[in-house]
Design a protein around this nucleic acid. Structure first.
Length: 593
RNA sequence: GGGCGCGUCGCAUAGCUGGAUAUUGCACCGGCCUCCUAAGCCGGGAAUCGUGGGUUCAAAUCCUGCCGCGCCCGCCA
């Protein structure tokens, strides 16, 4: 085996930011010469929009009025006055279209890439995502939350943050109440009869014996039954009321009803590489009394009001909430709390666990989330950051576990694996069955995740099998293939001791592009995190794979004259960047495919 | 009715903290495997950035009218 580079967990430096920082003193001298008196110009330097022209750019449009010259000629004057030679970070500095365009010196980039610096100690972040009601199997509508949430967890970790992935378990309330009532009152025969009568019985899934797939039938049957039989609602309501009083017996029965479902859901998520560090039950905040304390505290708010029947609310009209209902009810007439109230206590608790909170929520929770934030503010509790995503709908309508109008994730992942296997069978007939299965499972899972992670969260998705399972170029397999290719070369190169520096003069254009791409990794990651858009980092990763492939075509590691060590070094840097990029978005970086 | 979001080549998608020839993939057309994985590489055609107005030296990007789509507006969760 070749000497391996061990850069994991040591890449903390944003080289584009470093380039900006190192360019500023040199630019400042030039700008003073030209006679610009705008002290704000340093904040105008940013990443260049034209990646083929420059890494960073200074737009000169704002100086035009002051100097009475065209932006273009100002840019040219600045460029003429810049002493590039004195700055090791700066490569080319050129004027174009009113911009001062700066490219990093390739030698500087290469050096920085080869001597990474350790990440600084970071704050602790709690990312709460998924938190789906445990009433049935994971479906593709719920998957966007989990995939997005886990991608954030991974990206933050790749950026060196300490992250707790948190799942809020809704262990009280109507949904589990219905499930529990059904499990206790309906026989399997009854359930099957009810579902059959409504043509809801579907045992076509390979996973129909899995606990979550089994128990959702009881949930669906109870929902059908309660339309005709009012005693269902009565039974459920009694249970729900008791659960809200933290009745131990009822909470235990709820637990018994939903836990196998939750386990089934977590198994599905585990297959996608999605795991949690912490599970918190909603009932915990009733039991410890914190909900009651908060409700009492809210009465001191200036927004507080009381309804005729004794219910308590906050009037939010003055806080910019518009529409029919500006009242945020947090205590019912009978004195009990509501879901949102418990959410307040939950947030209060979360702040004891981390310095930053991020919630991943569907766009249907926007109003609710705003109300909760205002209430938190009234309680002097900080508000969390929230990432919203638009819904995934089926071509023929909205997904619903209750109505059985869903595509289950278990089935989607099966199908993804099968489709991937068809491809692997075709091009890797040399591999044994077990290996082929492992590869196709990794490809299927990665492709499914990437096809969601690469889309802007606020954009609605219409589920189509072809799209969800696409193995095309702009997808996970393309990236995985590039990584596997780099691994293959690493294996073939054998045990080599790698050079400690890169001779820039010998680099081909594709090699330079590759270095430039790698140098932007941390910047792209930081940017995607800052803007809450994982799709931006997905773009970088696709581009990284493409640049590696171009490099691979032109620059051979294994040649007739032996091993080209410089190209091997670039191959190893690429392999490392691809692997870390994959891990940051939930693609499995397999070593062979 | 009110609030929030979305509308970019045939399809999908990037860019939206104003700025340089609007990105990428699929599909379509044409090249490249005696050479480290062709799930690849190179080249080509294809876009009134939903639509009308405004702000600006500069608008896909900001403001606004309209059209279309989605989500929300429970003492539910």
């Amino acid at each position: 085996m070749a000497a391996s580079l061990h850069y994991c967990d040591t890449h903390g430096v944003d080289l584009m930011q470093a380039l900006i920082d190192e360019s500023i003193p040199t630019l400042a001298k030039a700008i003073a010469t030209v006679g610009i008196e705008d002290s704000n110009w340093t904040s105008m330097i940013g990443r260049s929009r034209e990646a083929n022209l420059a890494d960073i750019s200074l737009p000169c449009f704002a100086f035009a009025k002051q100097l009475g010259q065209s932006p273009d000629s100002i840019a040219q004057s600045i460029v003429n006055a810049v002493d590039v030679e004195s700055n090791s970070a700066m490569g080319e500095v050129m004027a174009s279209g009113g911009y001062v365009n700066i490219r990093a010196a390739t030698s500087w980039l290469a050096n920085r890439l080869l001597s990474p610096e350790p990440l600084a100690e970071s704050e602790h972040i709690m990312i709460e995502h998924t938190s789906a009601n445990p009433n049935g199997p994971f479906h593709v509508g719920r998957a966007r939350n989990a995939i997005l949430g886990d991608t954030f967890v991974r990206m933050y970790r790749a950026a060196g943050k300490k992250v707790t992935a948190e799942y809020y378990v809704d262990d009280m309330g109507k949904q589990v109440g219905i499930l529990c009532w059904a499990m206790e009152n309906l026989s399997e025969t009854q359930v099957n009869q009810i579902l059959e009568s409504k043509e809801l019985l579907d045992e076509s899934s390979q996973h129909s014996q899995k606990a979550d797939h089994q128990r959702v039938k009881w949930y669906q049957a109870a929902n059908v039954l309660k339309v005709e039989d009012t005693s269902v609602d009565e039974g459920v309501t009694t249970l729900v009321q008791l659960s809200e009083e933290a009745n131990e017996d009822v909470l235990n029965r709820f637990d018994a009803a939903y836990q196998p479902v939750l386990d089934g859901m977590l198994e599905t998520l585990g297959r996608m590489g999605i795991t949690f560090d912490s599970f918190t039950k909603e009932s915990a905040f009733i039991i410890d009394g914190s909900v009651e304390v908060l409700m009492n505290a809210l009465e001191k708010s200036e927004l507080h009001g009381t309804a005729d029947n004794g219910a308590h609310y906050l009037e939010l009209e003055s806080k910019g909430i518009k529409g029919k209902s500006t009242k945020f009810y947090y205590r019912r007439g009978d004195g009990s709390s509501l879901y949102a109230t418990r959410d307040l206590a939950y947030h209060q608790w979360k702040w004891t666990q981390a310095e930053q909170l991020i919630n991943i929520l569907g766009e249907d929770h926007k109003l609710q989330s705003r109300q909760v934030s205002i209430a938190l503010d009234e309680l002097n509790i900080p508000t969390p950051d929230v990432v919203f995503y638009a819904f995934t709908k089926l071509a023929d309508g909205k997904m619903s576990t209750r109505r059985g109008n869903v595509v289950y994730m278990d089935d989607l992942l099966d199908e993804a694996q099968i489709r991937a296997q068809q491809v692997v069978n075709e091009i890797r007939s040399d591999l044994d069955e077990t290996t082929i299965h492992q590869i196709s499972e990794a490809v299927g899972v990665s492709a499914t995740r990437f096809n969601i992670a690469r889309i802007s969260p606020e954009k609605g998705i219409t589920f189509r099998w072809e799209d969800a399972l696409s193995l095309d170029k702009d997808s996970a397999p393309f990236i995985m293939y590039s990584h596997a290719r780099a691994c293959s070369i690493y294996r073939r190169a054998g045990d080599q001791s790698l050079p400690t520096s890169i001779n820039v003069d010998e680099l081909s254009p594709t090699a330079i592009e590759l270095i430039r791409r790698m140098a932007k990794m941390q910047n792209e990651l930081n940017n995607a995190i800052k803007l809450s858009r994982p799709n931006l980092f997905c773009d970088w990763l696709s581009g990284m794979a493409a640049d590696y492939n171009r490099f691979y075509r032109e620059n051979h590691v294994i040649t007739d004259d032996g091993i080209n060590l410089q190209n091997l070094l670039l191959n190893e840097l690429s392999r490392d960047h691809l692997r870390r990029g994959c891990e940051a978005v939930g693609i499995i970086p397999i070593e062979e495919m």
